[in-house]
Design a protein around this nucleic acid. Structure first.
Lengths: 241, 241
DNA sequence: AAACCATAACTTGTATACAAGTTAAGACTG
DNA sequence: CAGTCTTAACTTGTATACAAGTTATGGTTT
């Protein structure tokens, strides 16, 4: 039995390249809703598909389960998780609360380069809306930029750690957002929210921040549009599993 | 290949009883610092100790690693993680920010039974301080009550979900707190903080909350007492792993 | 004595066989 | 035809053998 581990590779390599690749693919497919909630994902099918034994596949599924991407029913099977509205609401509260605080911090002292970054992201979002890209692609592009905007705010405030932490538990929020923001006016609204937030930061209007962030992030948790169209994706007690 | 999973056991049983037991034991031993940071934890040793094959043991270690309890160095070994001060600071910021918001919510409308619960916890904390219990046990008892106080606040505000989420990533904060609060005056100080917070909630003094929470949770991140005594537990780039 | 090298002993990673629980389908019974 | 039972096919859980990388040891060389 050894008594210590020698230093050599400073970095903790937590996963082989291939495993990481498979996990990223599964995550993407689930987040993009290509794999619909309720879809069965058996170890053997993945094992055959990716030409890898069940053991490493199980590692991946275990981790996905801990992050809410799938639900594991012992001896029955694994399914892509249904969207949990409770989680959406709670994560939304978490984000809005954190971002209010972060923006107040930033409104006192934001570096000029950071400001430029944020502004350029808004310009790209505007460009994205006006462009003739097809609807689905446009939405994805816009959302990527949306994330980049918020992530940048976290980074500028020295809170990258928390951004990454939240990202790990974002499955339900991300899918909800994707589904319910599928309208052009919605995108304009979101962009305007960003612009107003940036204005506040620049002009140090701390008192306006609370309301802005609230409306930007939390406003439509109970979107009727969502409830009318996507209830089949939502976690309900009676759902067949 | 099946196409759906029949409902029967509504509950997702994520782990067998034995596995859960082992995991809880490991978590407790790490949190209590009985297992010191840097301690090697090999799969085979656990496997022999608990009379279980390596496969389920690996499941446990994988999960502990994701929650920051241990670090896995492939083909080298697993160690109990060193305390990551960055994580302590970030989680502290997260908690203080969330709790400020939660307390503002509660100061408007807190149910009377909830208030009684909180008060009885404070009474027990006071009793704990005055009692003749030995130091180590007293500290543990006090900290359990401390957690119960904060947890109750989360629950009353409908934020149990977030409390549980944070708990999963509390390893570094919990161990830091345990080490640096190891003084009697410290305990009185913490209790007084609780009492002031409760006062604010009762009297709806929202403007005082920010400062109180800040001091209660965040005040001594850079505790010299901690740095002088426990640096051997702290994650540093040069640490032998 | 110091540096080097081969090798044995250890570590975790992967593949696979088997165990145990769940589901689906069909034969059987009333 | 409806209901029940048996059984085969499926699922994940566990044990174990082997693969591959890392470390420690001790002998050899210089």
């Amino acid at each position: 039995m050894y008594t210590s581990i020698r230093i050599k590779n400073r970095k903790l390599i937590k996963m082989s390249h291939k495993k990481k690749e498979i996990m990223e693919k599964l995550k993407n497919d689930i987040l993009s809703l290509e794999l619909k909630p309720g879809t069965l994902i058996s170890e053997t099918s993945l094992s055959e598909k990716f030409n890898l034994s069940r053991t490493p596949i199980r590692d991946i599924l275990k981790q996905l389960s801990l992050q809410g991407f799938i639900d594991i029913y012992p001896k029955k099977g694994n399914i892509v998780s249904y969207i949990d509205l409770e989680s959406v609401e709670q994560i939304t509260f978490l984000r809005s609360t954190l971002e209010k605080e972060i923006m107040k911090d930033l409104s006192s002292n934001i570096p000029i380069t950071g400001l430029h970054n944020l502004m350029s992201i808004l310009a790209m979002q505007n460009e994205c809306i006006e462009s003739k890209i097809e609807n689905q692609d446009k939405l994805i592009r816009f959302m990527v930029l949306d994330d980049r905007f918020h992530k940048t705010l976290f980074e500028l405030a020295g809170r990258k750690f928390l951004w990454n932490l939240i990202q790990q538990f974002n499955v339900h929020y991300m899918r909800y957002r994707k589904l319910h923001a599928f309208k052009k006016e919605k995108l304009r609204e979101l962009l305007q929210g960003h612009q107003e937030i940036l204005d506040c930061i620049v002009h140090g209007q701390k008192d306006r921040i609370d309301d802005l962030v609230y409306h930007h992030i939390r406003a439509d948790i109970n979107s009727p549009y969502f409830r009318e169209n996507f209830m089949e994706y939502v976690k309900t007690p009676s759902k067949l599993v």
